[in-house]
């Protein structure tokens, strides 16, 4: 087994990891503040992909991209206002069910609009170009994704650590009620969280779908779940944690996809075991292991239960 055989899998792992990271930040921020698994986030990501498909058909790409981002942000904002805000005082289970309901609604809407057909994602000129790295053929987006991800994460961390809104966010995620007593406008902080999450999801969807043939109504579900796992893995509420978790999951997942070829060429097994089936399932194995060994995740803070 040579390095050139593993390289393509690692490359696409890093790229997928970057895309996951952008989605996982949305999960981790919302969870940090509302203690809610925003099941609809994966579908917001899918809807962003579909919007891009429809918008790019009717307007040039340099307009379609910003319009998609703005519409996705509006969607995230609207979901929070319509489906989560009325339930702020309700038990946590109700909000989670509401999130599942929104996810169901978005998927069904997408099914209705697309007729269940696969919609081809437009190729974004510079990003979709083929390039060669150390003998491996890939698209430019593979190399660009981690860079974009890291730049965005740095900006986000600076925003959270050095602005007033960022400080409010940290306060709210630490203690919801006390923050409210201190005069922080909870609603605007929560809206801001959803705006940032949706913005990153929109950018993530552009990078993600460039690598894939198309968008279907269910294409958001699995990445959504995986990104939540990434957020838990890194320690929910922690942005660097989510990014690290996402990269680990992305790389592991792609290595498993290639494990068969590697094992066969290394002579460990004589015929393929079809282990690629488990590339999705592996994420959840990882989740269960981390919950066992370190329930707060890699970078999570320890929490104590109060009676």
């Amino acid at each position: 087994m040579s390095f050139s055989e593993v390289l393509p899998y690692i490359l696409s792992g890093i790229s997928v990891g970057g895309q996951y990271a952008l989605i996982a930040i949305g999960y981790t921020m919302v969870y940090g503040i509302l203690r809610l698994i925003n099941f609809a986030h994966g579908d917001v990501f899918m809807v962003a992909g579909l919007m891009m498909v429809y918008l790019s058909a009717s307007m040039p790409l340099y307009i379609a991209i910003p319009v998609t981002i703005v519409l996705t942000v509006l969607l995230g904002f609207a979901i929070e206002r319509a489906a989560y805000k009325p339930l702020r005082t309700a038990p946590r289970m109700s909000i989670m069910i509401s999130a599942i309901g929104v996810s169901y609604l978005l998927q069904n809407l997408a099914l209705y609009v697309t007729g269940g057909l696969n919609k081809n994602y437009p190729s974004i000129p510079w990003l979709s170009d083929t390039i060669h790295i150390a003998g491996a053929v890939t698209k430019r987006v593979t190399v660009v994704t981690p860079i974009i991800t890291i730049v965005l994460v740095i900006i986000l961390v600076l925003f959270i650590n050095h602005t007033k809104m960022g400080m409010a966010m940290r306060a709210v995620s630490r203690d919801f009620e006390t923050a409210q007593l201190m005069g922080i406008k909870i609603d605007s902080v929560i809206s801001m969280t959803f705006v940032i999450g949706s913005l990153l999801a929109a950018i993530g969807s552009m990078l993600y779908f460039t690598n894939y043939p198309g968008v279907v109504p269910t294409s958001g579900a699995m990445p959504g779940l995986k990104c939540f796992v990434a957020a838990v893995f890194g320690g929910i509420g922690s942005i660097p944690g989510a990014v690290v978790g996402a990269f680990i999951i992305g790389i592991c997942e792609n290595l498993i996809k290639g494990l068969d070829t590697m094992l066969v060429s290394a002579g460990v097994v004589s015929k393929p075991l079809n282990l690629a089936t488990f590339s999705d399932a592996f994420t959840f194995v990882l989740l269960i292991i981390i919950l066992f060994v370190r329930p707060t995740g890699l970078f999570g803070e320890k929490q104590t239960d109060k009676v």
Binding site: I37, M93, N274
Partner: peptide, 22 residues
């Protein structure tokens, strides 16, 4: 609560993958 939800959801996916394993 939510960790249980996501872990059981994950197990359902794992079972589905195992059943589909060639």
């Amino acid at each position: 609560s939510d960790y249980l939800a996501i872990a059981t959801l994950g197990f359902a996916e794992i079972i589905r993958a195992i059943v589909q394993w060639n």
